Amino acid sequence: MKYTKRVNFLKGLLNIIGVFILLLLMLSILNCILFFHDKGAKNTILSIIFSLIFFGGYFMTIFTLRKILNSILEKNPFIPENIICLRKIGYYILSIGLIDAIVNYPKPNNTGFILITSHGSLKPIIFLYISLSLLAFILADVFKMAIDIKEENDLTI
């Protein structure tokens, strides 16, 4: 019972975050369209593509997390689909980090801790994206091991 309340709360929170991310995506695309004349066609199209990948990665991460929460509600979290979902989350987070690094690299910034090169700067948040994606990949491997152990135990009983 207590797991059900917690999982339903998390699903509701993911719904709110998902709506907020969709709103940010629409505002980002609207911003690109409104400032079309300032940026030019090539930069506007690139901005729209990067916005779709960036916010789409967040949205797909939330959608995939909801799938995992549904399997927890069914009291069957150790299934092969969750391994696939965790790996997808790792790829989504890694792609978000790479897009963030590409978009923000040419902007030299002297505030905070940054890695400055002669052409731009990398912010430390890229390491957070990499760490979170590695965490998702590690969790996928742990789930794979749990499934193998569960199948082995099922055969011995």
Results as ranks from 00 to 15, higher is better:
I102Q: 07
A41M: 14
P80D: 13
L139Y: 11
I79P: 15
Y105Q: 09
S131R: 08
M60R: 13
F54K: 10
L94I: 03
L69R: 05
Y105I: 07
Y92S: 06
L132P: 09
I49W: 04
S133L: 03
I130R: 01
I84D: 13
K67E: 09
G12T: 14
D154T: 06
M26K: 00
F36W: 15
E81C: 02
N82I: 06
K123V: 07
F59M: 09
K11G: 04
F54S: 12
M60E: 09
N8W: 11
Y105D: 07
K88H: 09
L73T: 03
V19G: 01
I49P: 04
K88A: 03
S95D: 05
F35D: 10
L86F: 04
N8E: 10
F143Q: 05
S131E: 09
Y3Q: 15
L94Y: 01
L98P: 02
R66D: 12
I102T: 12
N82Y: 06
I45W: 04
L23V: 13
K42Y: 14
D141K: 14
N15P: 00
G18H: 02
S47H: 02
L27R: 11
G97Q: 09
N76H: 13
L128E: 11
S71W: 04
P80N: 12
L135T: 04
N82P: 08
G57K: 01
I125E: 12
S47A: 10
I45T: 06
I16L: 09
R66F: 06
Y92F: 15
N153H: 06
I68Y: 02
L30Y: 15
K150S: 11
I29T: 02
L52K: 06
K11R: 13
K2A: 13
I125D: 08
F9N: 14
Y3G: 14
I125T: 05
N15V: 06
N31Y: 07
L134E: 00
H119S: 14
R6A: 15
I68S: 04
P77W: 05
I102Y: 12
D141N: 13
I72F: 08
Y129F: 14
S118Y: 14
R66L: 07
F113M: 11
S121G: 14
F9V: 13
C32G: 06
S131L: 15
S133Y: 05
L30Q: 14
T44D: 02
I33P: 08
I138M: 06
V103S: 03
E74G: 00
C32M: 05
I138E: 07
C85I: 00
N109E: 11
V19N: 00
F35I: 03
S71I: 02
I102V: 15
L46N: 02
I17D: 03
F78D: 08
A146L: 12
A136K: 01
L86D: 02
F50R: 09
E152R: 11
H119M: 10
T61Y: 10
I93A: 00
G90H: 04
D141E: 15
N31L: 10
K75A: 08
